[in-house]
Design a protein around this nucleic acid. Structure first.
Lengths: 209, 209, 209, 209
DNA sequence: CATGAATGAGCGTTCATTCAT
DNA sequence: CATGAATGAACGCTCATTCAT
């Protein structure tokens, strides 16, 4: 299904509201008003509010597929370089689309729209498979140790990143960076997070730190 | 504020429904019916649906306070032992009250009941403080290295554990354990998760794995 | 039915609230709380909220009966003196129990509790009868002219007084007496109103002014 | 704000019910059912039950403005003729829209919707001003005496008329006109009331009767 | 005699969706 | 193709009242 400009406009407005107030608490009226379109348009374009949510997931996750694939198949990078890029790209993506990743998190936890759950499962399967290939590759090259639990590792990556984002305001307060400009703080945060996760991956994959 | 048996009954029924369908999608009618009480009881006991949610958080987080404290102040345990216990108790707690921790996660992400946000912030502050003391203690004893980012470390613990729980069905399928009895799978899962997180902590705290 | 102190306390609290917010908008909870008694007391003492309203009418109108009677039967007063006293006592009474007379007005207009309507009808009948006697007496004494419509006259008395009370805030503003102390204003108002009504009665009863 | 036919239909149904049972005791369900519209229409059209009440006041009082003005500015009528017309038109209006004037009375006494109170205050101010001009005109022409309290006079007009309407059933019984056809009784009543009020005005304005 | 606990009924309002145009 | 008008269903909540103690 191809989305035109108006579709995208509605989808991204919905994303914003879903992230701010949650799916259930966001009304189609709000979304329509915020997006500057008629209320009936949402049912008309997407069929229902739920289908709009599914459209959002398709919109955000549709292009993701080939990116990971092409990265992992790139022969000019070492396994470790790939891991590092993988981590940084994930962090980058989550920060860029923080709202969407919050929605995704909640959707996995509570709402469980079957279409979305299926979509996410497929992505997890594919990504796990690809990363597993990468790890096997690294093991064969002697870079990584054996017995790596891919999914636990992925959970640590994904979980640490989203949890860090959730804790952002607290982190800022705790480290007395309240007066640091937002942008500067964000960059610092992102750099520290990146190093932190990379160190974890190195430890898990190599027995070293 | 003390809750009687009926309060608890309603609170835990609400917990179940909130975890299953989300706060907004759970109606007071559902909760009342499921709990076997009159619909008016919820307003009567708690004031409102939102106050019921707050009561749930008080109920689950109220006793948490002294537990961590007493553990960390226990002089007969080494810093590493404390870390290990901390991790295991957290995993245990989240598994035991999976529903609640899912609700808590979503509450931090989308709904933002100020009472709850404040409560969580206080807990985070206190826990961060205590764990920081523990780490400093370990550093002074030469067990831990310097420059540890407490909050990133906590985010990894909390994030990894909840993300693993979220990925549980996928994990089971991926590792072809669909036919493993639920209980056995859960125990395996818990053990692996525990080792995984402990390894991460060791790596971060000591530069070794 | 005899009311004890607690009955009276509840009745007069209810009067206050009914006058302020209307009968329907006043809740038994409010009344009980304001009166400092248990919520169940109201049903327990009076049977229902509606019976409480009836009790209020009995309480305020019960003693009224003999007062008018004794005045009119007083032989030492001229018909005109009696009229003047009647007017002043009515004004006095309405000002004193402004709240109650507001409730009474509304009750006649909208709520129409049959017990109350019957009670008010009886009072109107008796008062009309008595005043009619007074007028006939005055006519026989040559003081009053013939063909006086008692009820229209009573309507003017009652209507003018309550309407004046309703218009009080406006009257104050219109006559630029906003800075006049409340008590002083009230006295001025009462005096003017008294003179105004008396002049009307004189005109209607005698063809003079 | 312009009301279409369905708006009017709902407004006038609401007027009927508010007059019969009071604002609070009339439910939007009753109104919707009686008006033959969906219950959601009331919120949809007016925003809320309270706004519907405000709409009723706008509907009934909106056109009133220019009527009084044009009457008073009519140079071909003597001050006395204007007074008489004013009285008759007021009586006519109140009889025609008895329900509304009952609602208005109660609204001034107990509920105190600020929008309505403000609207009524404005009307009172304007009307008082206009009538004051009329009286001054009459005084300059030597027809009226000095020292007339406009507001007391208006209170007598308004109060007498509404009080007479309230007392109608009693009046009928008292004067043994129970068997008189409703229409005939009403006409008689109206004529007597008109004469009564005019006599009062003449007395107050001229010292004669 | 008095009351805390509890409740069925019903409140005003909002919701996502439909449909005629 | 797009939309204003409309709606059935359900929402959270409050009400006066009851009843066991």
């Amino acid at each position: 299904m191809a989305y035109n400009d108006k579709h995208i406009q509605i989808i991204e407005t919905a994303e914003e509201l879903f992230a701010k107030k949650g799916y259930e608490a966001s009304t189609v009226r709000d979304i329509a008003e915020e997006a500057g379109v008629n209320i009936a348009m949402i049912s008309y374009y997407f069929g229902s509010k739920e289908k709009l949510l599914e459209a959002l997931f398709n919109h955000r996750l549709g292009n993701l597929k080939m990116r990971v694939e092409s990265l992992l198949k790139n022969d000019s990078l070492s396994p470790f370089q790939k891991i590092d890029i993988l981590i940084d790209e994930h962090i980058e993506r989550v920060i860029q689309h923080e709202g969407f990743y919050k929605i995704m998190l909640c959707e996995q936890v509570i709402n469980k729209n079957p279409v979305i759950i299926k979509l996410l499962l497929e992505i997890k399967k594919r990504n796990s498979g690809l990363i597993n290939e990468l790890i096997i590759d690294g093991q064969e090259k002697g870079a990584f140790k054996k017995n790596v639990d891919v999914i636990l590792l992925m959970s640590t990556l994904v979980g640490t990143v989203i949890q860090t984002l959730i804790n952002c305001p607290f982190y800022r307060e705790y480290n007395e960076m309240k007066k640091t400009p937002a942008k500067e703080f964000e960059e610092t945060m992102q750099k520290r997070l990146s190093l932190h996760v990379k160190k974890i991956f190195k430890a898990i994959l190599t027995n070293e730190a």
